[in-house]
Amino acid sequence: MNNITDLTQRPPRSMRTRLGGYALLPRMLDKGRAEIAGKNGEYHYNCPLDQRILEYLGVDAEALRKELAAGKGDGEILEWIRSNQKNKHTDAEIEAWSDAAGKRVPEGESIEFFNEIRTATAPHRSDITTWADLLDVDDYVTFGGKA
């Protein structure tokens, strides 16, 4: 299987990376492939972040996991999603959703969790304000970078 992502050696793609215009999608695919291969490290497929895009697409996590397990590449997965998604969106809607996903800030109960991770990862970085910022710096620090 040549699509294995070893997340014990490097992080998944940034949630800002897009596939078919969708933010979050490449990251979720990396985590799914790694989990199937037993190389997911601390990353989890179908986490709450993944569930956001799965809900937006109207795609079942387990059905998508089966496609990943079949060894399909990103282009094949995107084609499968477009054929199987319950929620169809225009390119403009996808772009707006992806832009909003990249700017999402913690709210409600997630603020404390966000701040715990930021404090542990980058305590002196007040510029870390969105989930995308936090995931990027957390991934970087997890694999030896300095915040």
Rank of each mutant, 00 (worst) to 15 (best):
T121Y: 08
E62M: 10
G73C: 07
L24C: 04
R104N: 13
D133A: 03
A37I: 03
T17R: 10
A96K: 15
R13A: 12
G73R: 01
L68K: 07
P11T: 01
M15E: 10
E79K: 11
L24E: 06
P11D: 06
S126W: 08
E62Q: 15
N3R: 10
D138Y: 13
D99K: 14
I81S: 06
D74L: 02
C47S: 14
D99R: 14
P12N: 09
E112G: 04
L49Y: 04
R118S: 00
G20W: 05
A23Q: 05
D127K: 03
G20Q: 00
I53R: 10
I81N: 12
G102Y: 05
R33Y: 06
P12Y: 02
G32L: 02
R52A: 07
W80Y: 12
Y22D: 05
F143K: 05
A23H: 10
Y45C: 08
E109W: 12
R65W: 08
A61V: 05
H44R: 15
S126D: 15
N87H: 14
A132H: 06
K31E: 09
L78P: 08
G32T: 02
T121W: 04
D99E: 14
G73Y: 00
E107S: 13
L64S: 02
I53C: 01
G21S: 05
I36A: 12
L25S: 09
A132G: 05
L49V: 13
G41E: 11
K103I: 00
V105K: 15
N40K: 11
K103A: 13
F143R: 06
R13C: 03
I117C: 06
E62I: 03
P48E: 11
I81L: 12
I111L: 12
G102V: 04
L57D: 05
N3K: 11
D74T: 04
T8F: 07
E93K: 13
N115A: 07
A122I: 00
K146S: 14
T119G: 09
A101Y: 03
D136Q: 01
P26V: 03
R104D: 12
G58R: 13
E109F: 01
R52P: 00
R10A: 15
F113L: 13
A69E: 11
W80I: 10
P26L: 09
Q85K: 12
R82M: 10
P12T: 11
P12R: 01
T119F: 13
G108E: 09
I94A: 02
D127E: 15
L19F: 03
R18M: 03
A132Y: 03
V141P: 08
D133M: 06
H89R: 15
R104G: 03
R27W: 04
R125T: 06
R52L: 15
T119K: 15
L68Q: 08
D139G: 04
D127G: 02
R18D: 01
F114K: 08
T119D: 15
A61C: 00
G71N: 02
A120D: 13
G38T: 10
R18P: 00
R118G: 00
T5H: 13
L134N: 05
Q9H: 07
E79W: 07
R52M: 13
P11F: 06
G58K: 13
